[in-house]
Structures are given as C-alpha cells and as structure tokens.
C-alpha cells in the first residue's frame, strides 16, 4: 500500500509542475488563472497525502478561493490579454 501512496504523490506533483509551467507561458490571463487553479487543486491532494491537514485547510482557502477571486477582480478592472513583448 505504501508504494501506491508514493506513486499517487509523484503523479500529482508532476501534474502540478506541468500546470504551473503552462500558466507561466500563457498570454490570456484568464486562462492562466484557470490553469493555476488546477495546479493548486493538485497540490492540495499532495499535501493531503503528506499528512498535513492544517496546511491543506489554509492552502485551499488561499490558493483556490481568495487568490482566484482577487485575480478575477484585478482582471476585470484592467485588461484580459497580455500585449507586447
């Protein structure tokens, strides 16, 4: 059973890495926000498997909830597409 834990942890953290890279390279800021929320959901399961429930509680409220709400508020006040080089 312990190998299954480690395999799930490895898969989840690798997907989080891939999604953070994709969010960094994206020019549409709303799409980047959605990709970033996928990354934070995967990392929440990673912290869960590492048996840290207090970090899971804080990380979910910040990275899935308040972060996305604040960034959508900022996008709605400014521009959606990143322009220029």
């Amino acid at each position: 059973m312990i190998e299954l834990h480690l395999i799930i942890l490895a898969i989840v953290v690798s997907f989080g890495f891939v999604f953070s890279y994709l969010a960094m390279k994206e020019h549409d800021l709303l799409k980047a926000l959605a990709l970033s929320s996928v990354q934070s959901t995967f990392f929440a399961l990673g912290f869960y498997i590492l048996a840290a429930p207090d970090i899971v509680l804080a990380y979910l409220a910040i990275a899935v909830g308040a972060y996305t709400a604040l960034i959508i508020l900022a996008i709605s006040k400014t521009e959606r597409y990143e322009v220029g080089e």
Partner: peptide, 17 residues
C-alpha cells in the same frame, strides 16, 4: 475535514467566471 473546504471553495471559481 479538508473535503468540506475543497468542495465549497471550488464552487466559487464557477460563479466568478
């Protein structure tokens, strides 16, 4: 108890989008 928080916060993204 992390499951309650996760299922509640994920709803927020839909509504804001």
């Amino acid at each position: 108890s992390g499951a309650i928080i996760l299922s509640l916060w994920a709803f927020m993204l839909d509504i804001y989008y």
